[in-house]
Design a protein around this nucleic acid. Structure first.
Lengths: 147, 147
DNA sequence: TATTGTTATACTCTATAACTATA
DNA sequence: TATAGTTATAGAGTATAACAATA
């Protein structure tokens, strides 16, 4: 199968680092951090019932997102409401302002990404995005070379 | 263009993290670090005339690869020879043993990767690899959303 | 006994500063 | 004055341990 290609990780990791770096100026313009944006992006899909679940969803440690959630809440971009069914937990939901901010950020980011994707021949571009989406939907545990 | 897709970085970064994590057990088996493997991979392509150039090539700081080079040299996987034309510099080249090790490691890694790639429909797979290789060959500076 | 959220702490990785020797 | 290689140090980012409240 492999016709003398470079390792996948060796190709993908530097590219994804560069993609993240390219997002930073945009995020700064909107005064939000990478983790903050990741949280908004996740909560836009659906509210989440515990902070632990959110942390797991975005691949972060539960202790690491606490300052992020604190700031998002202060800025009224998310709501943390005590769960009446489990008084330990705090339900998380994005506010209208949070949704608007994430939409604005994403529009800027994807505008830049589209210019980059334009370098890929149209015939390959959709297949690339389809394959990438497929890989991204795999659970991390499914990406293993053992067994 | 974008038909409601996730951000590129949001898709690629977790995947590349998982790919790197999947390599670790293989690297451990061959008793080499990720950076050590990256160095061998680069030197297999061509010898390099300064450590700074090597560091830049693999996206590392020049101070960070020194212990890596020390160990590779101790294990006779690379050679560091003083450059007669510039006595500050040390030319870097992979040895036969180094080349053999990198070939063995790469075979193991790509065997695992091929199993992963098999999940992608064949019609998309080659286009995916072609597009990924194209992005990987861009200089990091070319991946920018400004201008 | 286990889990949620939290704080404080330790650890890892990475970049910066400062040095010697050459150019 | 600038660069190659090196060392030691500082910083950012991340994970671990321990705690109170609740299940």
């Amino acid at each position: 199968m492999a016709s003398n290609r470079a390792d996948l990780a060796a190709m993908m990791y530097p590219v994804s680092r560069a993609l993240m770096a390219a997002e930073l100026p945009i995020l700064r313009t909107h005064e939000i951090s990478m983790w903050g944006y990741a949280v908004l992006n996740t909560l836009v899909e659906q509210p989440i019932h515990t902070q632990s679940a959110l942390a797991k969803e975005i691949g972060a440690d539960k202790t690491r997102i606490i300052p992020v959630l604190d700031e998002l809440q202060e800025r009224a971009l998310i709501e943390r409401t005590p769960d009446p069914d489990d008084r330990r937990a705090r339900r998380l939901a994005v506010t209208d302002a949070g949704r608007a901010l994430r939409d604005a950020v994403q529009a800027d980011i994807q505008r830049g990404e589209d210019r980059l994707l334009a370098r890929i021949p149209a015939a390959d571009r959709t297949a690339f995005l389809r394959a990438l989406a497929l890989l991204a939907e795999l659970a991390p545990e499914e990406i293993s070379y053992l067994s």
